[in-house]
Simulated assay, not measured.
Amino acid sequence: MMLRLGLSVMIESRIQQLIDALNVSVLEFARKLGEHRGEKVYHILHGRLKPRYDTLEKILLAYPQINGDWLLRGEGMMFKVLDSPSAAITVEERLRNMEFLLFQLNERMALLQETNDLLRAEIEQLRQQG
């Protein structure tokens, strides 16, 4: 029995989700990180480069509302929910957080359903053999 690991999204995918959620172009995103051209970010998004520590640090400095745990490991919400001014999030960002959490829940439900179906099939096969 082989289960897909749909919950472990690659960091490149999270960076793309972030760019989409911020509603900026790849070039705008790269420039906010101090890059003059977007090539480095494009290469990261297409899997040709792995993001280095300094790039991840630049993202978190340029966008202090981003949850570092989410960016690095995919844990928690995309945007921080704190009272500090640097981490204040807008209603729109809260809605994106909720959409992302719903997406995660749907992915988990689909994975659980798939696992359940596979286990039922195995049980039925064992019943027929025994």
Rank of each mutant, 00 (worst) to 15 (best):
A88W: 00
A88I: 07
A88M: 05
I89M: 01
I89P: 00
I89C: 02
I89A: 00
I89G: 01
T90H: 01
T90C: 04
T90N: 09
T90L: 02
V91D: 10
V91L: 11
V91E: 14
E92S: 13
E92I: 05
E93K: 13
E93N: 09
E93G: 10
R94V: 07
R94S: 11
L95P: 05
N97L: 02
N97S: 00
N97T: 02
N97Y: 01
N97P: 02
M98D: 12
M98A: 13
M98E: 09
M98T: 14
M98N: 13
M98I: 13
E99L: 11
F100K: 13
F100E: 13
F100C: 10
L101F: 11
L102E: 04
L102M: 07
L102S: 03
L102N: 04
F103H: 15
F103M: 15
F103S: 06
Q104E: 03
Q104R: 04
L105H: 09
L105V: 11
L105W: 07
N106K: 13
N106L: 05
N106M: 06
N106Y: 06
E107C: 11
E107L: 10
E107R: 13
E107Y: 01
R108S: 05
R108I: 03
M109D: 08
M109K: 08
M109Y: 07
M109F: 04
M109R: 08
M109E: 08
A110Q: 01
A110D: 07
L111G: 03
L111V: 05
L111E: 11
L111A: 12
L111W: 02
L112G: 05
L112C: 07
L112R: 11
L112S: 08
L112K: 07
Q113I: 07
E114V: 05
E114G: 08
E114N: 09
E114H: 10
E114Y: 12
T115F: 12
T115N: 14
N116L: 14
N116T: 14
D117A: 15
D117I: 03
D117L: 07
